[in-house]
Amino acid sequence: MKRLDLFRDVLDKQVTDREKTKMGRVDGLVLELREGQPPRVVSIEMGFVVLARRLHPRLADWFLRLRRRVHVRKQACYSVPWSRVLDVSPFCVQLDVEAAETPAFDWECWLRDHVIAHLPGVAK
């Protein structure tokens, strides 16, 4: 059995998609507590609000309030079921997703289309 230390090997690690595009970090881990059985990792979470919650709950509330005015990202917290994890290597946690289609890339795509595309000298 391969041993995985959640804190050392998974939390805060670089997340990439199928094509190895960097799409964020493991900002949070969710465990499911089961009656009479050992706990199980059900999902990883990504998003500023997850980071904010790690620092202070009030910071997370403030973040969520701010989000009501800015509608770029579809979900504040992008939760990926552990079943979509392809590989955990020393470099990254690779997910079986396409980065550009996930909430983790909403800001990236928005900024690309609304800001970068309007700056001079960008190849279309």
Binding site: K22, M23, G24, L111, I116, A123
Partner: peptide, 23 residues
Amino acid sequence: TFGWNWGEDLNPREDARFCLVYT
């Protein structure tokens, strides 16, 4: 820090956030 795509050799369209930070 946030795990975004980065690299000066990429086209700005591939790492929009990285480019906007230095901008």
